[in-house]
Simulated assay, not measured.
Amino acid sequence: MQKIPTMGLGDPQASFRVYVAKRPPMQEYADLTAVQSLCRGEIDSINAACGNGWRKLFNVYSKLLFALDPRQFAFSQQASSWQQYRDQHLLQQRSNTALLFSPPELNPAEATIHIIAGRTHAKHLLNQGLAAQLNWLNQEFAIDTSNRLLVCPYFDYRQLNNEKIVRLSELIKRLLM
């Protein structure tokens, strides 16, 4: 796979990374060439400008972080609810979270969790040369334990509902064992 600069929103040093195919269709993000941390209120601005799909993505991302084992991840200890975490921490500087629009840079020596949101996006990345050995667990979830990589349904309530968020959090826990 040709080296593409890591582009997205969030903490440039994040070890919890979610990959989606498209960036918010806003002028502010059209020319991203790196990972840009969000400021408080910026998620609300994206939601207002880009609609319900982005609101769902940010909500599901926050709900997932709150479903993770607090002995492994401190996200749920930083806010009293997933909504508060979304508004005050998600994708901000030093949040340890990123939403990326470029392919994963896999390095088994790093303790980074990589989550590709959407089977179609994952298959596209594989066709482009992503060096992953995915083991498909079912039609929706795949895992590559050596690269700490997961594929899950897209971050939308209908595709990644609460039950599937719990399943994804269990798979993340498995990656860290």
Rank of each mutant, 00 (worst) to 15 (best):
A117G: 14
S102D: 03
Q128T: 08
S76C: 10
K123E: 00
N96S: 07
N96E: 00
Q93V: 01
S102T: 05
P104H: 10
T112G: 07
A122Q: 04
L126G: 02
W82A: 07
N127I: 09
G129D: 07
H121S: 02
Q78V: 03
G118Y: 09
H124A: 08
Q88S: 10
Q84W: 05
R94M: 01
Q92D: 04
I116P: 15
Q84M: 02
I113N: 11
Q84G: 00
Q93G: 05
R119G: 00
N107W: 08
S95P: 10
K123Q: 03
Q128H: 13
A74Q: 05
Q78N: 07
L130T: 11
T97V: 04
S102C: 00
A132K: 08
A79C: 08
S76Q: 15
S81W: 06
L91H: 10
S81R: 11
Q92P: 13
G129C: 04
L126C: 13
A79G: 15
N127C: 06
T97I: 03
A109P: 06
N127A: 13
A131Y: 05
A109Y: 07
F73Q: 03
Q128E: 05
A109K: 13
W82I: 06
I115E: 03
L106I: 13
Q88Y: 00
F75T: 00
D87P: 10
S95Y: 00
S80R: 13
N96H: 11
H114Y: 04
Y85D: 01
L106A: 13
Q83P: 00
Q128D: 03
L125Q: 04
A132L: 08
L91T: 00
G118D: 02
A117I: 02
L126D: 00
T112H: 10
L91Q: 05
F75N: 00
N96Q: 15
A98F: 08
F75K: 04
A117L: 13
S102A: 14
F75M: 03
L100K: 09
Q84A: 03
T97E: 02
W82K: 12
N107E: 04
L99R: 12
F101R: 10
T97W: 10
N127K: 12
Q128S: 09
S80Q: 13
D87Q: 12
Q84N: 09
I115Q: 13
Q83F: 01
N107P: 11
G118H: 06
Q77N: 13
S95R: 08
P103A: 07
Q93P: 01
H114G: 06
L106F: 08
T112V: 15
R119M: 01
S102Q: 15
L106Q: 14
A131D: 00
Y85K: 08
A131L: 08
P104F: 09
L91M: 04
N107A: 09
H124G: 06
G118W: 05
L90R: 02
T120K: 15
I113W: 06
A117W: 12
D87S: 09
L90F: 04
W82M: 10
A111W: 10
Q128Y: 02
A109D: 01
K123M: 07
N127W: 06
S80T: 07
L91C: 08
Q72T: 03
A74I: 14
A131M: 05
H124I: 12
R119C: 02
L130R: 12
Q92C: 15
L106M: 13
Q72I: 07
G118S: 10
H121I: 14
Q128G: 13
F75R: 06
H121P: 04
N107Y: 02
L106C: 12
